[in-house]
Write a protein that binds this DNA or RNA. Structure first.
Length: 273
DNA sequence: AAGAGTAGCAACCGCATCTTT
DNA sequence: TAAAGATGCGGTTGCTACTCT
């Protein structure tokens, strides 16, 4: 549905922000918090549109913005995450604390794209045959955990059922719109399985949460159906249960885990970037 | 010294999605 | 349930500083 652009007024400032405008915006947000961007400029006394204020805050004024050059480790991670996620700058930025999606997008467009161009595309291939199912699943768990922030982690209710948000496993849940009766796939068939159905099943508590991380791994491998990888669930459950005994690792550690994980997977998840 | 070309980055814009009424 | 409003995202633009000739 269409709507008028929010910045159509003639009497608003455009272009670079002045130090005074920054000061006013920072002071207002400090007192009133983020949000309500559309009404913020008027209340704060700024001749800017709400979108401009939001962008300025998120990309520049936020106190947790990390200044300085992108480190080699960050660059490496950006490349790998971009290979996994594509131009999902906000998702990539979410894995780089203190960095904004705009900054990463700019960095990619100016520096990294050329670097990566001409090199091999991400290979979507099967795990090597010398991998035991147990090892494959252990890696899958590590990978899936990375995409589940501590805040999003599985929350169990009193009955032991699991509430799971689609965002918990990246964006894979949105790869297919919900168009089926929820929870009908407590067992999977190659013809019927979809990521959405699987997640709906999880949401309804019809599928064990222990299975969830496996699905992200399967997505990364380009699998059309979870069933193809779903033959050794007992092994997988056991490994996941063991790992679940420990608390979620530090966020930075998770990032390094992904990097190490992908480093180990030369030729599998597209290690030759 | 000056003009052209280029790189880097902040900011804008349009659209999609989510939320509210 | 539909419409309107609010927010978020990704592509693009345009300004500035720097380098080259």
């Amino acid at each position: 549905m269409g709507r008028k652009p929010c910045c159509s007024r003639e009497d608003i400032n455009r272009g670079a922000w002045t130090a005074e405008e920054d000061r006013i915006l920072k002071a207002y947000i400090k007192n009133h918090g983020e949000g309500r961007w559309r009404s913020l400029p008027k209340k704060a006394g700024l001749k800017r549109c709400g979108k401009s204020c939001r962008l300025r805050w998120l990309n520049y004024l936020r106190p947790d913005i990390k200044r300085g050059n992108i480190t080699h480790e960050e660059e490496d991670l950006i490349i790998r995450l971009h290979n996994l996620l594509g131009n999902k700058w906000s998702l990539i930025a979410g894995r780089l604390p203190g960095r904004t999606d705009n900054e990463i997008k700019n960095y990619w467009n100016t520096c990294l794209r050329k670097k990566v161009q001409g090199q091999h595309q991400l290979k979507r291939c099967q795990p090597p045959t010398n991998e035991t199912p147990l090892l494959v699943r252990t890696k899958a768990i590590r990978c899936a955990k990375l995409f589940i922030t501590p805040q999003q982690h599985i929350a169990q209710n009193q009955e032991g059922n699991v509430a799971i948000e689609p965002a918990m496993i990246g964006e894979m849940a949105t790869s297919k719109a919900p168009n089926s009766e929820s929870g009908k796939h407590s067992s999977f068939t190659p013809e019927e399985d979809t990521w959405w159905d699987v997640l709906v099943g999880l949401d309804k508590g019809n599928v064990s949460p222990l299975e969830a991380p496996d699905f992200d791994f399967m997505r990364l491998c380009g699998s059309e159906s979870p069933s193809n990888y779903y033959t050794r669930r007992e092994d997988f459950k056991r490994v996941f249960e063991e790992m679940s005994d420990t608390t979620l690792p530090d966020f930075e550690l998770e990032l390094k885990s992904l990097a190490n994980f992908l480093d180990c997977e030369e030729g599998w998840l597209g290690g030759d970037l």
